[in-house]
Nucleic acid binder design. Structure first.
Length: 270
DNA sequence: CACCACTCCTGCCCGC
DNA sequence: TGCGGGCAGGAGTGGT
């Protein structure tokens, strides 16, 4: 599923092809996404020129002359650049057409979203409360230490709290905690400064490694319509319950934590 | 506030 | 072989 690295790779992939271009047509084949695409969507968006392609957490943001397009891929969404004449396949719900090329959203589960916001984006309710970027400078050991004080929840739940750090999903929360040697259930408020530092470094390394893996497949990822979807990686713990830890061989354990499946190595993580 | 359960939806896997 | 049931999963929403 699209986690932050996939969203960033998508951003990099579409940026050179949509930057400076004007939306000439919008085809909404199925408006029933996370939030229903309004009837006046096309009217507001056609004629807009894309000035910047940004990412905030897992939101893709296309800044246009008169407003912003906000795109979220949910858990099964993907954006591809296609020839607008290419017949849409099942689940290809929406096209943003830029003359001879189109951004096509496919999203079988329809947890994704496409929104238009007139004018300014600051204080938009979806973005206003988002925490720091995990790959940004503000996500530091000291930041995490302060953010975790007096928190009773497990550190994994805190890592996945977008109001603290934006865009860390279940897979990378699990993987980052493995890299940091910290168990998912560890109470956030009990983490030492040193462990916070290790965790911050681990999150960065994990996301960067995924970005590097995705970067190499960027061309396919963005251009080919037939490809299966997101880049595959080898995970240390995610979805590996019962399998041997890649580092020490101990069986990976799974546990339910805050409605989410968690995976950890009982030997490598304490 | 902090935390939790619930919700949207489909593909996939399992058991019968 | 086909079908029903259960489940995963991002993140907003609403309740305690």
């Amino acid at each position: 599923m699209p986690e932050l690295p996939e969203v960033e790779i998508t951003r990099r992939g579409i940026e050179p092809l949509v930057l400076g271009r004007t939306i000439t047509r919008v085809d909404v084949r199925n408006p029933n996404l996370r939030w229903r695409v309004p009837r006046n969507f096309a009217r507001r968006v056609v004629g807009q020129q894309v000035q910047q392609v940004l990412r905030r957490g897992k939101y893709l943001l296309l800044q246009c002359a008169g407003g912003w397009l906000i795109v979220h891929l949910g858990m099964s969404g993907s954006l591809r650049l296609v020839d607008p004449k290419t017949p849409p396949r099942e689940h290809d719900h929406l096209d943003l057409v830029f003359g001879d090329t189109a951004l096509r959203l496919r999203d079988p589960r329809r947890f994704g979203a496409v929104l238009w916001k007139d004018g300014d984006l600051s204080r938009h309710p979806l973005l206003a409360a988002l925490g720091v970027e995990p790959l940004g400078e503000q996500f530091s050991a000291e930041f995490l230490y302060r953010a975790t004080r007096a928190r009773q929840a497990g550190v994994k739940q805190l890592l996945m709290n977008a109001n603290v750090v934006a865009g860390i999903g279940n897979i990378y929360a699990n993987e980052s905690l493995f890299r940091a040697g910290i168990r998912p259930r560890t109470r956030a408020g009990r983490l030492s400064r040193a462990r916070c530092a290790r965790l911050v470094a681990a999150v960065r390394e994990t996301l960067q490694a995924a970005l590097a893996a995705g970067g190499s497949s960027l061309r396919d990822f963005v251009h080919s319509d037939g490809a299966s979807g997101y880049f595959q990686q080898q995970y240390f713990v995610y979805d590996r319950a019962g399998l041997p830890c890649r580092v020490c061989g101990t069986a990976i354990r799974s546990a339910r934590l805050g409605q989410r499946s968690s995976f950890y190595c009982p030997s490598c993580q304490k």
